[in-house]
Amino acid sequence: MQKTHDHKALWLVAPALLLVAFTAVIPLMTVVNYSVQDTFGNNQFFWVGAEWYREILQSDRFHAAFLRQIAFSATVLAIEIPLGLAIALSMPKKGISVSVCLVLMALPLLIPWNVVGTIWQIFARVDIGLLGYTLNGLGVDYNYTQNVGAAWATLIIMDVWHWTSLVVLLCYAGLVAIPPVYYQAARIDGASRWAVFRYIELPKMSRVLLIAVLLRFMDSFMIYTEPFVVTGGGPGNATTFLSVDLVKMAIGQFDLGPAAALSVIYFLIVILVSWAFYTIMTREDFEPSGGVR
């Protein structure tokens, strides 16, 4: 057979493919398998078809968790993307201060999720936490174990604190890649600061922004560790997001069938929304100011 391109490269990819198959595809298929069956233990399974899916999709519990999840992701994106952009824009472009800023920015990213949760759980406590104690001392009625608003605010501030840096670093990489001649041309054209942002920086950053939005969406939509550690899904079910709910269902109640069905639905939602973001943001006539908030 004649070939110009070396297919030997495929062998280099093979181990990775195999690993992905074992760690992702096979477990996923197992989940799909569970989601269409019922069991009363003893390894006996009964075929139930789409019954679990119907039950999940009609349940108020799922609707509530889903809405909470959407609200959380939307809020987090709405804060982190503009904030990250703003910080990236105001960062220095040269000199030693660059590396100082970059290290400071990277710090929160280096802390493991559960540690972040623990830090904030303690930091926000009313009795011994610096934040909680101070706020209450100032007369603010703040208690994340009792107050729904306080619980949400704590989780959102925590996520913003933890992940805005990622957006900053991505945007900054996009910014420094813009050739200086564009800024020079804009100055000569008499462009305002806003016009420079709108017509040079934003278009040139649209690719990295897409990556930032996708990463932050997927991550925030699947958040588990932090709410589990800080609020445990409470007060009541106020911070019981889809992921938290899923674990309660699967491990707390051992309803394997419904939990599996929920997992598959969850998985499809994440893919669907990511695809939607991707399509909108890579559209030919995509106008950044209209598409991203």
């Binding site: 001649v181 000569i188 278009p203 040139k204 950044p288």
Partner: peptide, 17 residues
């Protein structure tokens, strides 16, 4: 911007969008 100068560069500088 206050000098009333126009400049054309070596490589085309256009506003993509």
């Amino acid at each position: 911007e206050v000098r009333n100068i126009a400049q054309i560069f070596q490589f085309p500088v256009i506003y993509d969008t």
